[in-house]
Design a protein around this nucleic acid. Structure first.
Length: 486
RNA sequence: GGCGCGUUCGUCUAGUGGCUUAGGACACCGCCCUCUCAAGGCGGGGAUCACGGGUUCGAAUCCCGUACGCGCUACCA
């Protein structure tokens, strides 16, 4: 196993969407695989028929691909160990379970849900430290079992956990972890519907698919003893386990839907860049040991190592995500932003307009350092797309003094005399008017921006004028005389 | 309750026995730049390294307890 290229898997259960915690697990698996020239595999763990969700697998795959985490083997692309969907591997689990039963490592259990429920209640009443199955069916004779089987009495298959064993395993992130087998229940391996539980399916598949490293969330650490026992029962070599710290809500509980968005799809739809989400989520529990915080996916591959993953949970801080999004957006070429902006425009009332690339590119250049999201190239500067319908209330007083209309009229007239004005032409014209009026340029600049955009903030005013064009500028100044009442 | 895992600024984190008066980032505040807002630059406040014992000449760093938090405790993953 030493020096062999690692094989890792992301094994989500299809619940309808990709959880950001799942994204991070997938990412770490991907990074580890790619860093070590190994393989990254997607396997669908759909052994719970009660939780079956239509098209969940498609969503999962779509979200993973959107994020750029391309796997080497998976349900839609196949691979040498297909199928990669557990519900299509039922015979495999059956075969391996039979083997375990033959070895005495597992046994049939015909207990009814009622008996199980009573057993549990009794144990709770006795204030036993833990509730466990009492191995009742372990004592069934061969003929009893055969009889039950031929009478089609529903059954499950349980793992036969021997008492008083120390179960020790190594975790790449937490080092040595030890459990007492007395605390491990005779876990159900095959459910009465014939489907395997996660514990069985995961071990069988990981072995068959030659998975070398099991990198998964910390919530699995408590059930790892069962998995270890299974590897031993089959006589298989154990993979290396690496249990990742949890992603947390602001109140430090496990990241959940109740306290904000958890679906990758929601972040995508809200306008987060995949680069930012990946970068952000990578840093939640890992760092290279230096001060660097800005990474692209390929750079993460380069820098990643399991040894530098933290042990403690990390709060998902949306504010920091936002700032990373802004940073990634600023670094993007304008042409790329243009594509995204056009897509966004299609979602607004401006979709019927026919904006030129040149025009939108100017907006992007002017606004790039003032936005955090692509949609803010629209939302934060509607005035580029339409004349202001209203004027920022609290800014009127500051920007619209009694003498303002007179001064702006002079400016308007100066502008109207310009021919195909450049930015500089506007600037010179304004300088000249301010000289004539014997006022500082600011006295003209701020009311001008306000008249033209309806806002008191925004890009440099001469950029604003140039982008809008002379005709529109004059129209808007005139409109302002009508609309702004002080 | 039992078992397990964890605990450095509000948050993400650096730190693997002396380089640490604990460093960086986000957020917050101030200054510079400046036509505004940003971006950028500079600076500030903010962590008795959960607590208590040890080990050591010396501990955020090693050991032991305690507290707190979280996870698991299903015929769910």
């Amino acid at each position: 196993m030493i020096n062999e290229a690692p094989r890792v898997r992301f094994a989500p259960s299809p619940t309808g969407y990709l959880h950001v915690g799942g994204l991070r697990t997938a990412l770490y698996n991907y990074l580890f695989a790619k860093h070590n020239n190994g393989k990254f595999i997607l396997r669908i763990e759909d052994t719970d028929r009660n939780r079956y969700v239509e098209s969940a697998v498609d969503n999962l795959i779509k979200a993973l691909k959107w994020a750029g985490l391309q796997y080497d083997e998976g349900p839609d692309i196949g691979g040498i160990f297909e199928p990669y969907i557990q519900s299509q591997r039922l015979e495999i689990y059956k075969k391996h379970t039979d083997e375990l039963i033959a070895k005495g490592e597992a046994y049939y259990c015909f207990c009814t849900p009622e008996r199980l429920k009573n057993l549990k209640e009794e144990q709770e009443k006795k204030k036993l430290p833990q509730t466990k199955y009492d191995k009742h069916c372990l004592n069934l004779s061969t003929s009893e079992i055969e009889n039950n089987l031929s009478n089609k009495i529903p059954y499950v298959v349980r793992l036969n956990v021997l008492p008083d064993q120390k179960i020790i395993f190594c975790d790449a992130i937490r080092n040595r972890v030890e459990f007492d087998s007395n605390n491990v229940d005779d876990q159900v391996l095959i459910k009465s519907d014939g489907y395997p539980t996660y514990h069985l399916a995961n071990v069988v598949d990981d072995h068959l698919m030659k998975i070398t490293h099991v990198i998964r969330g910390e919530e699995w650490i408590s059930s790892t003893p069962k998995h270890v026992l299974l590897y031993d029962a089959f006589g298989w070599e154990r993979p290396t386990f690496a249990h990742l710290p949890l992603l947390l809500n602001p109140d430090r509980s496990k990241l959940s839907k109740r306290q904000g968005d958890v679906a990758v799809e929601e972040y995508r739809d809200k306008g987060y860049l995949k680069e930012a989400l990946i970068n952000f989520v990578a840093l939640l529990g890992w760092n290279a040991g230096d001060d660097r915080e800005f990474y692209y996916l390929n750079e993460l591959v380069e820098a990643f190592s399991l040894e530098r993953v933290n042990k403690s949970g990390a709060v998902f801080d949306i504010v920091k995500l936002n700032s990373l999004n802004a940073e990634h957006l600023r670094k993007k070429p304008n042409e790329e932003i243009l594509e995204m902006l056009r897509a966004r425009i299609q979602e607004t009332e401006f979709k019927i307009q026919n904006y030129s690339d040149e025009f939108l590119l100017m907006i992007i250049e002017a606004m790039k350092e003032r936005v955090s999201f692509v949609h803010e190239f629209i939302d934060n500067c509607k005035y580029f797309y339409e004349a202001p319908k209203e004027y920022e209330k609290k800014a009127i007083e500051k920007n619209w003094k009694p003498e303002t209309p007179m001064q702006l009229r002079k400016l308007r007239d100066a502008f109207s005399r310009l021919e195909n004005p450049t930015k500089e032409d506007y600037e010179h014209a304004l300088a000249k008017v301010s000289e004539e009026l014997v006022i500082v340029k600011g006295k003209l600049i701020h009311p001008l921006r306000f008249a033209v955009s309806g806002q008191s903030t925004g890009p440099g005013v001469f950029d604003l004028l140039f982008i809008l064009g002379k005709e529109e500028v004059i129209k808007r100044i005139d409109a302002a005389f009508e609309n702004i009442k002080n």
